[in-house]
Computed example of a mutant assay.
Amino acid sequence: MSVESLVVYVNGEYVPRAEARISVFDVGFLRGDAVFDTTSAWNGRIFKLDAHLERLELSLRAARIACPVSLEEVRGIIIETTRRSGLRNAYIQTIVTRGEPPFGVRDLTQCRPGLIVFAIPYVFILNPERGGGRATIASTRALPVQCLDPKIKSLSRLHFDLAMLQGKAAGMDVALMLDLDGHVTEGPGFNVFVVKRGQLFSPPEGILMGITRLTVFELAAEHGIPAREAQLTPYDLYAADEVFITSTAGGIMPLVEIDGRPIADGKPGPVSQRIHGLYWQLRESGKDAVPIFD
């Protein structure tokens, strides 16, 4: 699959990737004034598409952005874009921008919203062939809910980018973020879980309510693994039996080192590996998934 064959939906048209364009006056570009959602396909089926669309609708409502088409139409556009790109395993992003106002007008209520959908080959935050990832805790703090609630999946992501760059400069795979009180929140594009004495713990607030995170809680309940939300500090990460991250981009991915400290024996643990296996069994089964080509 070459990048030239990929198709992008832009404001009513399906176009080749190389021809995808938006206006430089779109405030989604100028200000990051846009919301988005990311889902994925595996074996020709898009996972939990309706849950992702529901989250997109909530982000739109909270950000006071009107979608230019109905959510049912967005659903069809996501499927069709992925189908036209010929991808069975795909990373799919849907972006709704506030759009472009009339020329010379600063009134955001006069913007005409835009819709962009693209699908690219499936990506992993952490290489699945590696035996776990290494992380650092970034000095850049997560945005407090009083400024921009992270439950709104917005394109205002400079804080995430700064954390990612700090992690890369330190030679780490990923960066973890704290809130202003020093509690663990999330990372750029992923949620965090700690395993202690066989139980799963994940931060309760200051985070995006990840669909993969929710899937972990569902799998844990189904298979009798204790799991609950809890405030966590860096100490809880360092002293954990296991730590793993969850994302549409990769599923369940163990961390084996944080800030130079091995997590337990420095290898992926049994609970993380079990959750990883259950997640990919679910993906392989096609349950909770919408066919692209059927």
Rank of each mutant, 00 (worst) to 15 (best):
D294L: 12
E100F: 01
G266Y: 09
A66L: 04
R83E: 10
C111H: 03
T81D: 04
R112Q: 11
W42F: 14
A138Y: 07
L178F: 14
K287L: 09
G171K: 11
A34F: 04
G104L: 09
V174K: 09
F36D: 00
E72F: 05
V243Q: 11
V69L: 03
G224Y: 12
T97H: 06
V145C: 11
N191S: 09
F29C: 10
R75K: 15
I275D: 06
E73A: 11
L214M: 13
L115K: 01
S5H: 15
L108K: 12
G266F: 11
A63T: 00
P262G: 13
F201D: 08
L30V: 15
L143Q: 07
I116E: 03
P291G: 03
L126Q: 12
R197A: 15
R106N: 09
P270M: 14
T82S: 01
R84E: 08
P268N: 11
G12Q: 11
L49W: 04
A34K: 08
Y279P: 05
I79V: 15
V117T: 04
Q273G: 13
V123W: 00
L60E: 05
Q146V: 15
L58P: 03
G260E: 13
D50M: 05
T94A: 08
I292C: 07
P204L: 12
D37W: 01
I22Y: 02
G133D: 12
T81V: 05
N43I: 01
R106K: 12
D173A: 10
R31H: 14
G286T: 03
F244E: 06
L53T: 01
R31S: 05
T185K: 04
R274F: 09
G104C: 09
P203M: 09
A18E: 13
Q273N: 14
P203W: 01
D107L: 06
F201W: 14
K196I: 03
R112E: 08
R134D: 02
R283N: 07
G250N: 04
S5W: 03
L126D: 02
A18Q: 11
F160H: 04
L108Y: 06
D241T: 14
I120T: 14
L58K: 07
G250M: 01
R75M: 07
K196A: 10
L49P: 05
G76F: 02
L108S: 04
V117P: 00
R283Y: 05
P128K: 08
A249W: 00
H223K: 15
I22L: 14
G250K: 02
E19Y: 00
I65W: 00
P270C: 15
Y122P: 01
N191T: 10
I120Q: 08
R157T: 06
G182S: 13
K287I: 03
I292D: 00
D33E: 10
M253L: 09
A170W: 12
L232P: 05
H183C: 08
E242Q: 10
A62I: 01
L232Y: 12
E218W: 02
F47A: 04
G133Y: 08
I116P: 00
A175I: 07
L49R: 00
L162T: 07
V174Y: 06
V290A: 01
